[in-house]
């Protein structure tokens, strides 16, 4: 479970996020929904222990990220905004490298690789160097890297960007499986259809603040609109009043 409590972060004069609070529960898919520059990536990076926040706090399974970043990171699987692969390493080597940081070695490591390989249907690329991989293949490696060590919490920054329909469907299935297995899944997106299809809980963000927070149907009802897209436009349009809409 991830709890974000009143976090604030500025880059120089630019206030990226302020007073952001929400909770992402286990066995649920929570989505940060917002336009480009709304503060989604800054929020996810703060959760991943990659940023030093200016105020507030984040806990992962009760562990404060600021005070104990490595303990919190041990409970996280992170799918960053860039895949960040090593072109000269094979998929297997990528997975082994990152899994070893989480203490997996020898037979358990090999078993975990085989398991994730079957889940993501990536046997054909397992022993190939990642140089020249398609966007879908890169996504699979990055996702496998994030979930191989079976973390309780998985954080994904716009995981579907650049993917074709088949890969989006595959990703969606994996995320639903993770949720069903009890993991806390937190992702960011600005694609309404994807959010609607996946999310149990949506956190709407605009200009670095949370505008609304609830299930997709609750948010639609709150905005008195026909769908989530219209609800998003209405609810994020009110952020200038600095008022949080609670569903």
């Amino acid at each position: 479970m991830i709890i974000v409590n009143n976090i604030a972060k500025a880059y120089g004069d630019v206030q990226a996020v302020r007073d952001v609070s929400f909770q992402a529960d286990d066995a649920k898919i929570s989505t940060l929904l917002g336009a480009n520059g709304s503060g989604k990536t800054t929020t996810l990076r703060s959760i991943s222990g990659l940023l030093k926040i200016d105020g507030g706090g984040v806990t992962v399974d009760g562990i404060a990220v600021t005070e104990h970043p490595m303990q919190a990171q041990a409970r996280l699987g992170v799918f960053p905004d860039s895949f960040g692969l090593y072109p000269r390493l094979t998929t297997r080597e990528h997975l082994a490298y990152f899994a070893e940081f989480h203490g997996l070695t020898a037979a358990p490591l090999e078993a975990a690789i085989e398991d994730v390989c079957a889940k993501l249907n990536m046997a054909d690329i397992l022993d190939r160097r990642t140089e020249g991989f398609s966007q879908g293949q890169r996504m699979k490696v990055a996702l496998a890297r994030a979930i191989l060590h079976k973390p309780g919490n998985i954080v994904l920054d716009e995981p579907t960007r650049g993917l074709d329909v088949m890969n989006i469907r595959l990703l969606r299935r994996i995320l639903l499986d993770l949720r069903d297995a009890g993991h806390c899944v937190l992702l960011s997106s600005h694609v309404m259809a994807e959010v609607e299809a996946l999310s149990d809980h949506v956190v709407m963000m605009a200009d670095g603040v949370v505008c609304a927070d609830g299930t997709p149907s609750e948010l639609v009802a709150l905005a008195k609109q026909a769908n989530l897209e219209d609800a998003f436009v209405v609810l994020t349009g009110q952020q200038g009043s600095a008022k949080r809409n609670v569903a």
Binding site: S48, M70, L76, V78, P80, G84, F98
Partner: peptide
């Protein structure tokens, strides 16, 4: 861009 996933590890 591989620094980010690396720094997100324990």
């Amino acid at each position: 861009h591989s620094m980010q996933p690396l720094l997100a590890q324990p």
